[in-house]
Nucleic acid binder design. Structure first.
Lengths: 348, 348
DNA sequence: AGCCAGTCGTGAACCGGTAAAGTGTCGATT
DNA sequence: AATCGACACTTTACCGGTTCACGACTGGCT
């Protein structure tokens, strides 16, 4: 070997510099750093010493290029940015993800997209371009158009949603149907007969599941005063929907919402219309972030641990990447947490 | 050239396949896709057609490896994951970032770290490993240890914080000192003389700036009833601090908080102690997410548009990456939004 | 001594692009 | 006719790792 290249400061240090300093070939350095057999302990130590001296660590991009998958998981979200900041659900979910990712020194690659086609293209680019080692899919629609192309990709994916929606992808889900049924039974038991539901966009899978369960349970209880409105997820839409419901001739005496922002907005509408909660109208939120405990009266909610949900999703994804996991995993069903916003309807 | 390799399904499609189909060299394909001169319009069209036919797009990892910087910006946050889910600030900030990033088809690489050393090492790895094209630095400390090593890196960085803290990195900041002074003057004008402040961790730069401004303004007004407590940022710590303040013999008649979660928690403590807000104690929050409008009474706050703050940060970072921006950029100073939680102190 | 197996390490090919130097063609200029 | 420059590509050398076929050396066994 000719003169080993001294570490020219300024030039970025590569595996070659380390190999030169340690007096071995770069193949040896690679083996040492991926602790594989074929390097004696003595040499290994020399290599590590050299790396430490030069402050070298393997270049992830180069690593990824030659086959190894990145320590990055992708999450594309197809919702307006503003909403992301307002709705507590996503941030709690992401915080749960990060909790598990950080343990394994992984990062989350986050991107907002405008539509599902853009999302599909993005995942293809991320996977083919070896940018991510796996991905998290959320907000499934009925017959979701993302499923076939992503299935063809072969990327490790964990789907967030009921197995009936996620097209065979391993999934993590909560039992929205049971929870919706519980919500209806609870309100019915309080004496409500005209119950409304303000849901998310009609095409969204979990909204659909809740809608079906809502209707089925109402029918089962012999109630025909059920009404459902599909909206977006933002406060204003929840407010508008609530206003519409409360102004109708046969106004409902109880409303179930699909998240907590809409419920909070609904509470504001009720108060603006001079209706008392829960005497004139009972309100039941979903997801139960701290928002629910702050209104006056505090909102009853179908509550679950969203942070934990995120953790489970991340764990499942690692299971999939490592090949140890298949199938669906259920996290606890949202459970009714009664607070001040639900009660028996006023006698008419 | 020998027989062009047909596109074997199953093998991943590369620039070579596109070149073969288009009947050119891979260099030509590269030039076409980076629209550089040296390719005739006819050939260019043939190349694009071939790429479309094969569903090819350039492999980002390979691109990054040969010099080009990634369309990814890094953000490491050194706070517990749970907090991230609870505090509205970060999510609104991130939603602002994403709004601008998405416009340029960039993604955000998010990672939680345990301490500043881990954070520094992470940024070094991200930059040297060509994982990111730039980064956002938050939560500056006085004499922040991240500054020298990151400065040496030469990575495009935008710092979030007052220029006096960010060690020469281009920064985006709000005028915390003026805002803190305004808060104190407002409370003093209402007649408060014993004003307390519940701040974030003592070492944190912006907490320090607010603390100094708080003290200076109190002195300027001839008030010596000022007290400050440094805590973490979570609700429980805010509650504990508030409890401590309100149980002390000379309890303050007004409290300013460093964020809104702590203020909300403080409001709960006041009510639990049977104190009325604002008669017994006035509460003033900071950051003003929707939380503040939901408590009873609603919280007065030093409010600013955090989403917009995030947008400015992202825009500044792009300016830095493209070399068109240097220096600091100020976003509007948080302005006082009085609501029901502040008022004149009860006459003693 | 001769052979074999095992250990340690080397060297070259490869991952999929980019960039800069090199080649060939053609019309215009001297 | 020879020279020149512009254009349209092709060739080749990287970027910084991983992988794997192969060689050199060592020690044990017959």
């Amino acid at each position: 070997m000719s003169t080993p290249a001294p570490h020219v400061p300024g030039r970025r240090v590569t595996i070659n510099d380390v190999a030169a300093v340690a007096g071995v070939s770069k193949g040896a350095v690679s083996m040492a750093f991926n602790n594989r057999p074929g390097v004696s302990p003595t040499t290994r130590d020399r290599i590590f010493a050299a790396a430490r001296e030069l402050g070298w660590s393997p270049n992830q991009t180069a690593r990824n290029l030659s086959g190894r998958r990145a320590g990055i998981v992708g999450l594309a979200i197809c919702r307006p940015a503003r909403l992301l900041g307002l709705e507590p659900f996503y941030m709690e979910f992401i915080s749960g993800l990060e909790d598990v990712l950080a343990e394994r020194s992984c990062s989350l690659l986050l991107r907002l997209v405008r539509d599902l086609d853009e999302e599909t293209a993005l995942y293809q680019e991320w996977w083919r371009g070896r940018t991510v080692g796996g991905a998290i899919l959320v907000d499934f629609h009925r017959d979701d158009p993302r499923i076939p192309p992503l299935r063809a990709l072969g990327m490790p994916v964990v789907a967030v949603g009921h197995p009936s929606l996620t097209g065979g992808f391993p999934s993590v889900w909560t039992d929205d149907a049971s929870a919706a049924a519980e919500a209806v039974r609870y309100l019915a038991a309080l004496g409500h007969r005209r119950i409304a539901r303000v849901g998310g966009p009609a095409g969204l899978g979990h909204s659909g599941i809740r809608a079906a369960a809502f209707e089925a349970t109402m029918a089962e209880l012999g109630l025909n005063g059920g009404r459902q409105v599909a909206t977006g997820f933002v406060g204003e839409e929840g407010a508008r929907a609530t206003r519409g419901l409360l102004m109708s001739p046969d106004r409902p005496t109880a409303i179930v919402y699909d998240n907590d922002i809409m419920a909070v907005a609904g509470a504001a509408v009720a108060s603006e219309m001079g209706l008392s909660v829960p005497d004139d109208v009972s309100l039941l939120a979903w997801d139960d972030s701290q928002l629910c405990r702050l209104t006056h009266p505090p909102l009853s909610a179908m509550s679950h641990d969203v942070h934990h949900f995120g953790e489970e999703v991340a764990r499942t994804l690692f299971g999939i990447i490592e090949g140890t996991h298949r199938g669906a995993r259920q996290v606890p069903t949202p459970s009714l947490t009664p607070r001040g916003s639900t009660g028996p309807p006023r006698r008419t």
